[in-house]
Simulated assay, not measured.
Amino acid sequence: MAQAHNKILVVDDEVATRTLVYRYLTKQGYQVESAGDGVNAMATFAQFRPNLVILDLNLPDTSGYRLCQEMQAQHPVFVLMLTSRSDEIDRIQGFSQGADDYITKPFSLVELDRRVKMILASASVQESGRKN
């Protein structure tokens, strides 16, 4: 039931995770782009203008926290952290840096799908509220 106008950017330095999430979300009908580091993520973000970013915290050239802040400063976007960092302090920091949701690895594609749908539904409600 995903609509093609929903655009998602997947940022993860692990090729296997990035590819898995990219393929799964593409099959669900989303427009998906991906990046493996902060520099490429920001370039893709600026050009693609996603509705949602699925963001790993551990990147080779920056932290997901910093990247989340940079993206939010350029264009308000929903962010779902997808990371191996499972400590409470990491989750709290993620939310304080602008994340809307937080999933730890290993993760379920079914759970990821439900969370993506919930975030995008919330975005849709907020967008329709601005038009009225």
Rank of each mutant, 00 (worst) to 15 (best):
A46I: 02
R23H: 13
L120D: 01
N132L: 11
A41M: 06
S122D: 10
T19I: 03
I54W: 09
F45W: 12
I8N: 04
T83Y: 07
T83P: 06
I54P: 09
N40F: 00
L112P: 08
F95M: 01
L52Y: 03
S124E: 13
L82I: 03
L52K: 04
A46T: 03
V21T: 09
R18Q: 05
G98I: 10
T44M: 08
H75R: 07
A16R: 10
P50Q: 04
A73K: 11
V10M: 11
Q28T: 04
G94D: 12
A16V: 10
D100V: 06
S108Q: 08
A4N: 08
E70D: 15
L67V: 04
S128V: 06
F48N: 15
R49M: 15
T44F: 02
V39Y: 14
D56W: 14
G98W: 06
V15C: 00
Q74W: 07
E111I: 09
G98K: 07
L52A: 09
G129A: 05
V39F: 14
N58W: 13
M118Q: 11
R49I: 13
M71S: 04
S122L: 13
I103D: 04
R91G: 02
A35D: 08
V21F: 05
M81L: 15
M1P: 15
F48R: 12
N40H: 03
L120T: 00
R114P: 05
A46M: 05
N40Q: 02
P50N: 05
R114I: 04
S96T: 12
L25I: 09
S86C: 01
E70R: 11
D13H: 11
I119L: 15
D113P: 10
K7F: 00
Q69R: 12
M1A: 10
A16Q: 14
S96H: 13
I89L: 14
A16H: 12
F45L: 15
L57K: 12
D87V: 00
V77F: 00
S122P: 03
L52T: 02
N58V: 15
Q28F: 07
R49L: 15
K131V: 11
R66V: 11
P106R: 04
D56C: 12
A43V: 13
Q47L: 08
L20E: 06
H75Q: 07
C68D: 12
T104P: 06
E88D: 00
S122I: 07
